[in-house]
Structures are given as structure tokens and as C-alpha cells.
Design a binder for these strands. Structure first.
Length: 480
RNA sequence: CGAGGUGUAGCGCAGUUUGGUAGCGCGUUUGGUUCGGGACCAAAAGGUCGCAGGUUCAAAUCCUGUCACCUCGACCA
């Protein structure tokens, strides 16, 4: 049966160990998540990829609502004068802004930025909407796309246009703004781990790495299987940095005019890249069950035999009624073996093989994508058993990812150790707080500071770079 | 953005050195046989050779520019 040259006409995924980057591209394309378009740096997200994003949206949006946020929609175009109001912000984003300079056939009086982020337009509106302490807080979010003229792009990881959500909130006090900033960081942390099965390090960014215009930036950092860091979500406390130039003020209870305190926070379709690079393997994508568009696929075996297809349809309806996202693969033009490989490539967490022998025994054969373990499940109570299996798949995927992350995180005390460690992982080190040391580490090793964990228990007392007294614990890694 | 590589049918490739009017495998369509880990037979359809200029009697092939992807750097919430 298997001819020697079979591999020549079988879809080939580059092994991770051979070329991680090529492996990623192969998986993205072959799992049919996206396609390239004629527009520089912009991708078309295909139904299977967009399905993952819709589930991410659904899970996150529920968390935003539960913490008192509401969704709004702001213009995609921002007048240049607004963008110029906050100096650090302009400086940070100016190099990657796309501009609209003409409307119809007429040149515009003032050019319009295609939003790279929406702080300036939110702030402009907030200055109109906030008058009194009774108006506060305002806790809004928008789901939209933004555009940044990136020099080099990678599907999902860095694209010129990308889908994201940006939360923007206004508060009366610094304490409230800080509370909000931390709350949303924790939402991201919990979401990454409990929904995506992606373990993350939460912490505070250095001044060098913080958002343009922020007082403080916090991030959740994930580790990809090549040991590189992927910033997977950020939460910023702006203090009054934007409120001052945009004149967002309120009259307090005792009649004093005060500046508002603001936050913003966001995650993007980059999370799909995080899923791929955290969980994928030689066979392709491996989706965490909670965001898998198809959680269980039913494969009829010897479907021409009487009763098999009918039973499969029955099982499908049963599982669907129980709230499981299920697909019956009833194609008759590809073999069972072909389907096995295809659904593994697409990362479906569980497949159920249903053949004449199974039906005789009153069972189906359940095969897990994460372990390839094969286990017969009785038709009786199948939905519950599948649901339990999906939960276990999630748990197992998270444990494996966490073990990998922990194995590839090491405490280092000097530059030699740091250089070796960031070759394929995170280095946990003491840092003096001086940006010169960050710059030097970047220059010598290619690694950047990721974030400072909230648990600042010292792992030494001198800076990994300059050797002076140091009191900050910092993660360093090469990053996407 | 710099250096190197690639771009020919839906996918993977040959053909480019030495210009002469495009080929193979898979896939697709139709019919038949199969069916528990990437099936088989037969017939058929499918290409302005990434795009734009140029040289030439003639360009997939030579020249220039440009776009996309890959590798290594630089840059980057």
C-alpha cells in the first residue's frame, strides 16, 4: 500500500526542530487559518481561523461585561491634531501610522491617521462626556481593527492591520485607575491560562518597554516552544498623562476641578499565534478545547455499511444538543486515514471513530489530539464522557505548556549565564533599574526585558549586567 | 530597512546556465471498484511562467524596477 514516494504528495509540515519559523508558517497555512492578500502585510483570516477569534471574543467579552465594561465604537480615522497632543504618544506611534490625505477627488485640509490605537479619539470624546464626579467611572471597550505600518510582518504575530479589543477607562482617582489596570491584567492572565491553556508571566514593564504615553505598563508574557517570549496582553495606567493635554476634568464632590485618571488595555489576534506556538506539534495545530471551533469530530468508518451514517448523525445531534461543538465528517471521497491526518492537522481536540464493530459493542472509539490515547466510550452517556475528556485535554495541555515554560526559565547571575539562557528560554535576573543595562543586554544577547513579576523575592543582590547593587527582579528573553 | 534565497496549473516541482512559443506528480471533475491510519483503475478539464517596463524576428529564460514569502541582522507596546 504505502509507496516509497508517498511523502512526495502528502502535505508536508517542516519539523519544528529544523526550522521553527517555517513550521509556524506551514501550520498556519495548512490548517487553513488565513491566507495572504494583495495588500502589503494584511492577511485574510479564513473561517477556521476567524472561528477561533470569535470564541476568544466571546470568552473575553463575557469577562469584560462581568467587570462592568460596555462596548462602544469609535471612528477609524483620527485627525492629525489629536494624535499630536500627547508628546510621548506621537513619538512612539508616528513611524508606523498610515495616513489618509484625500477625500474623493479633493485633498484634505488636515490629514487623517488610520488608527494605530485609539487613546486620542477616546480622550477627545471623554473630555466631552465627563463633567462631574457623578459621570465617573466610564469603562468602555471596543472590538475593532487597527493599522500599523510594520516593516516586517508575520501571520497573526505582527500584521499591518490586525483585529483586537481596546479597553479605555476614566476614573476619579489614581487608586481606582491602578485597581482597574491590575484587574484587567488579571483578567488576561486568567483567560490565557484557563481558556487558551497558555501559561503566562504577569508583571510590570520597564520604562524602556512601556507603552508610549503610559505611567506604567503591565503585561502577560507567554513562552513559545522555541523559547522566545510573546507579549500576549497589556494593561496600562496613564495617570493623568492624557487627561492633561486632552483636558479631561471633573468637578469633585467638594467643588474642585480635578484631572481624571485613565487606563487602557488590549489583546489582539496575536493570541492565535500564541496558541499555535505554545501547543502545536509535528502533526500541526493543537487547539485548546475552549476555543476550538470544532471540539469533537465524528468519523464514520466503513460508512457504506448499513446503519453507520445514521448512527453518526444521531450522535452528532446528541452532542450538539449537549452544547459540544461537533462536526460529522461525512465526506465519501477521502479515506478514513486521510481524515485522521487532516483533523489532527487542524487541531481538533477529540475525534470519535464510529464503525460497525463499535456499534455492535455499543460504543465509539475516542481519540485525543493531545496524547493520541484511544479509548472506547459507551454510547450511553457519551456527551458527558466527551465533555469530561475535553476538560482533561485542556488540563493536560496547560500542564505540558507550564512544565515546558518552567523548564526553560532559569535564574541567572551574570552575562555569560544570561546569554546562554536566552538562547532558548527566559532568564530571571536581578537588574539595577538602569536603562543602559537593558540596552547593553539587548545589544549583546538580543534579549529584552520582558517584565518584573509581582513576587519580587530577590534572586541575588547585584545587577546581572553592571554588577552594581540591584533590587529589581526582571525576566529577560528574546521576543517576537 | 540591509545581506542572501525563492516566485512556472489549486498544491509541490522540472525547464532558466546555452532565448525558439510550457511539462511532471498530487489535487480537481466524471464513471467504476474500495473503506478501522494519508486507496485503486479509466477518461477529462486546468497555466497572460508574481507584477510592470526594456532588449530581441522571438523572452519562463537576458536587463531594470517592483511586490510577496523564507533565512540572518536592524527596527518594533
Amino acid at each position: 500500500m504505502a509507496k516509497k514516494n508517498d511523502q512526495e504528495f502528502v502535505k508536508h509540515i517542516t519539523p519544528r526542530s529544523e526550522n521553527f519559523s517555517q513550521w509556524y508558517t506551514d501550520v498556519v497555512l495548512q490548517a487553513d487559518l488565513m491566507d495572504y492578500t494583495p495588500v502589503r502585510g494584511c492577511m485574510a483570516i479564513k473561517p477556521y481561523g476567524y472561528g477561533i477569534w470569535e470564541l476568544i471574543q466571546k470568552e473575553l467579552d463575557a469577562r469584560f461585561k462581568a467587570t462592568g465594561h460596555e462596548n462602544v465604537s469609535m471612528p477609524m480615522l483620527i485627525p492629525e491634531s489629536l494624535l499630536l497632543k500627547e508628546a510621548d504618544h506621537v513619538e512612539g506611534f508616528a513611524p508606523e501610522v498610515a495616513w489618509v490625505t484625500q477625500g474623493g477627488t479633493e485633498p484634505l485640509q488636515e490629514r487623517l491617521a488610520v488608527r494605530p490605537t485609539s487613546e486620542t479619539i477616546f480622550c477627545t470624546m471623554y473630555s466631552k462626556w465627563v463633567q462631574s464626579w457623578r459621570d465617573l467611572p466610564l469603562k468602555y471597550n471596543q472590538w475593532c481593527s487597527v493599522m500599523r505600518w510594520e516593516k516586517t510582518t508575520r501571520p497573526f504575530l505582527r500584521t499591518a492591520e490586525f483585529l483586537w479589543q481596546e479597553g479605555h477607562t476614566v476614573h476619579a482617582t489614581a487608586e481606582e485607575a491602578q485597581e482597574e489596570t491590575m484587574q484587567m491584567l488579571h483578567v488576561y492572565h486568567e483567560f490565557c491560562e484557563n481558556v487558551l491553556a497558555v501559561p503566562v508571566y504577569s508583571g510590570q514593564k520597564s520604562d524602556k518597554e512601556k507603552f508610549a504615553g503610559a505611567r506604567a505598563t503591565y503585561s502577560v508574557e507567554a513562552m513559545m516552544q522555541d523559547g522566545k517570549a510573546l507579549q500576549s496582553g497589556t494593561s496600562h495606567n496613564f495617570g493623568t498623562n492624557f487627561a492633561e493635554p486632552f483636558e479631561i476634568t471633573y468637578l469633585s464632590k467638594d467643588g474642585k476641578l480635578e484631572y481624571c485618571h485613565e487606563t487602557s488595555w488590549g489583546v489582539s489576534t496575536r493570541l492565535i499565534g500564541a496558541i499555535i506556538m505554545t501547543h502545536g506539534d509535528e502533526r500541526g495545530l493543537k487547539l485548546p478545547p475552549k476555543v476550538a471551533p470544532i471540539q469533537a469530530v465524528i468519523l464514520p468508518i466503513a460508512a457504506h455499511k448499513g446503519g453507520v451514517m445514521e448512527k453518526c448523525q444521531e450522535i452528532r445531534d446528541q452532542l450538539a444538543a449537549a452544547g459540544i461543538r461537533v462536526r460529522l465528517d461525512d465526506r465519501d471521497n477521502v479515506s478514513a486515514g486521510w481524515k485522521f491526518n487532516e483533523w489532527e492537522l487542524k487541531g481538533v481536540p477529540v475525534r470519535l471513530e464510529v464503525g460497525p464493530r463499535d456499534l455492535e459493542a455499543g460504543q465509539v472509539l475516542c481519540v485525543r489530539r493531545d496524547t493520541f490515547e484511544k479509548k472506547p466510550l459507551p454510547l450511553d452517556g457519551l456527551a458527558d464522557a466527551v465533555r469530561a475528556t475535553l476538560e482533561d485535554v485542556h488540563r493536560n495541555m496547560f500542564e505540558i505548556a507550564r512544565a515546558f515554560r518552567d523548564e526553560h526559565t532559569k535564574v541567572v547571575h551574570n552575562m555569560d549565564e544570561l546569554t546562554a539562557q536566552v538562547d532558548g528560554g527566559y532568564a530571571k535576573a536581578m537588574w539595577c533599574g538602569d536603562q543602559a543595562c537593558e540596552d547593553r543586554i539587548k545589544e549583546l544577547t538580543g534579549a529584552t526585558s520582558r517584565n518584573m513579576p509581582f513576587d519580587q523575592t530577590p534572586v541575588g543582590d547585584t545587577c546581572v549586567c553592571c554588577g552594581r547593587k540591584a533590587d529589581k527582579v526582571m525576566y529577560f528573553a528574546k521576543a517576537y
